[in-house]
């Protein structure tokens, strides 16, 4: 069985000359995303991560290679709306993706475009708002909500189209820590409880840690990929491409280099405390 999203040798460049000179934005990307997977795509600005994301719902078409979503080629015009229904997208700026002046009417926008029956739209809208914890705000004006709430409304708007996958393009970069947590909790839960495939584009490593798999992009190519534990143990490489490393991993890495025998795959504060405790206990016993 094929993966849900298959990117096969995807190349992409813009058509104007300045960009031709600076080389392609995406260069020979091979990537499979399985059903129900939570994949984080990391990279600094200009690494091509947003461009790649826009290939997953046919907002951009590859200049070379192809992208298949559930076996459908994104270049096939006849499949366009089905692909966009299956792969919903949440964008970076919470203010610029809400269409309507009332929360519930905005959530209804997608299914309305798809021509869903009115009573069914009503059901889906209520259900989607409930899933993101915004049901009590259904009659509010979006501009009065916090950034985190706006992004959750945007997620509900996607959910109401009953997608199989949600691609989120830096959904938290304009939010405060509270809003960031709201959004991340929401997407983790949707992934866990409903098996919705999640593709999270981000430059925050704390967010990438939550994923099943991290893909690091650099200059339009895949530099590293694997379980967060593997990826974040390659501290030197991440540093080179200008990405953060989780503080616990960084601390253990530095201590290890100074000769302290710590394990290589420490990721969270809790794991770090465990590992340090063991060593400190030994040292106390030694004294």
């Amino acid at each position: 069985m094929n993966a849900f999203i298959c990117a096969e040798k995807v190349r992409f460049h813009y058509d104007n000359r300045a960009d031709m000179l600076s080389g392609p934005v995406l260069d020979d990307i091979d990537l499979n995303i399985e059903r129900g997977e939570f994949v984080a795509i990391l990279g600094h600005n200009g690494s091509g991560k947003s461009t790649l994301a826009k290939h997953f719902n046919a907002m951009l078409l590859p200049s070379g290679g192809r992208v298949l979503v559930s076996g459908r080629d994104t270049a096939d015009q006849n499949e366009l709306y089905e692909i966009r229904r299956m792969v919903g997208m949440v964008l970076q700026n919470p203010d610029n993706q809400i269409v309507s002046t009332i929360v519930e009417e905005d959530v209804a926008f997608g299914p309305e475009n798809l021509g869903v029956e009115p009573s069914e739209i009503r059901r889906r809208v209520d259900e989607a708002l409930k899933a993101v914890g915004m049901l009590e705000y259904r009659e509010h004006a979006p501009h009065k909500l916090s950034g985190g709430q706006k992004q959750r409304v945007a997620i509900a708007g996607v959910l109401a189209m009953q997608p199989e996958c949600i691609v989120l393009d830096e959904p938290t970069s304009m939010l405060d820590p509270q809003g960031r947590k709201e959004v991340l909790d929401t997407i983790s839960r949707l992934n866990r409880e409903r098996g919705i495939t999640i593709v999270l584009i981000t430059h925050f490593m704390e967010e990438a840690v939550l994923a099943d798999r991290v893909v690091v992009l650099e200059n339009g190519r895949i530099l590293l990929q694997g379980h967060p534990r593997e990826v974040f143990s390659d501290i030197e490489r991440l540093r080179q491409v200008g990405l953060d490393v989780p503080q616990p991993a960084e601390l253990c890495h530095q201590l290890r280099r100074a000769g302290v025998p710590l394990p290589e795959d420490v990721l969270t504060a809790e794991e770090c405390v465990e590992a340090l405790s063991l060593l400190l206990e030994e040292s106390y016993a030694g004294n």
């Binding site: 601390l251 201590l255 100074a258 000769g259 302290v260 340090l276 060593l279 400190l280 030994e282 040292s283 106390y284 016993a285 030694g286 004294n287």
Partner: peptide, 14 residues
């Protein structure tokens, strides 16, 4: 802060 503590232990244990 941690390095001296861990080193000391390491040395003491050795």
């Amino acid at each position: 802060r941690l390095l001296p503590l861990l080193r000391k232990g390491g040395a003491g244990g050795a």
